[in-house]
């Protein structure tokens, strides 16, 4: 009998605690969507990504894997992209 109570007691606790944990947010006041926040992080990541691509492009050029013309046009493209991203970031 004791075993029974102990086991089922434990199960009850292990069941009730998660349930409280789970439904707790439903009693919070309405939260506004944080879309702006999201955009900032993803834009920042995008910026970082493009910076890295520029670095890599420069390295490829230094090694000699790309010719002068491709390098300058590629870098110009990337710089244009990154300035767009920065402009978007500034506008927020």
């Amino acid at each position: 009998m004791m075993d029974f109570i102990r086991d089922y007691g434990l199960i009850l606790i292990l069941f009730i605690l998660p349930v409280i944990f789970v439904i707790q947010p439903l009693f919070l006041p309405m939260i506004a969507k944080k879309n702006i926040q999201v955009d900032v992080t993803s834009l920042k990541r995008k910026k970082l990504l493009i910076y890295r691509q520029i670095k890599e492009l420069e390295m490829e050029f230094d090694i000699g894997n790309i010719n002068e013309q491709d390098f300058s046009s590629g870098r110009a493209d990337l710089k244009r992209e990154v300035s767009e991203v920065i402009a978007q970031l500034n506008s927020l």
């Binding site: 998660p18 944990f21 789970v22 439904i23 707790q24 947010p25 439903l26 919070l28 309405m30 939260i31 506004a32 969507k33 944080k34």
Partner: peptide
């Protein structure tokens, strides 16, 4: 509704 998202996340952790 963000509250549903939070609950969903916690259910998944559950």
């Amino acid at each position: 509704d963000q509250r549903l998202f939070l609950t969903g996340q916690r259910l998944a952790l559950g």
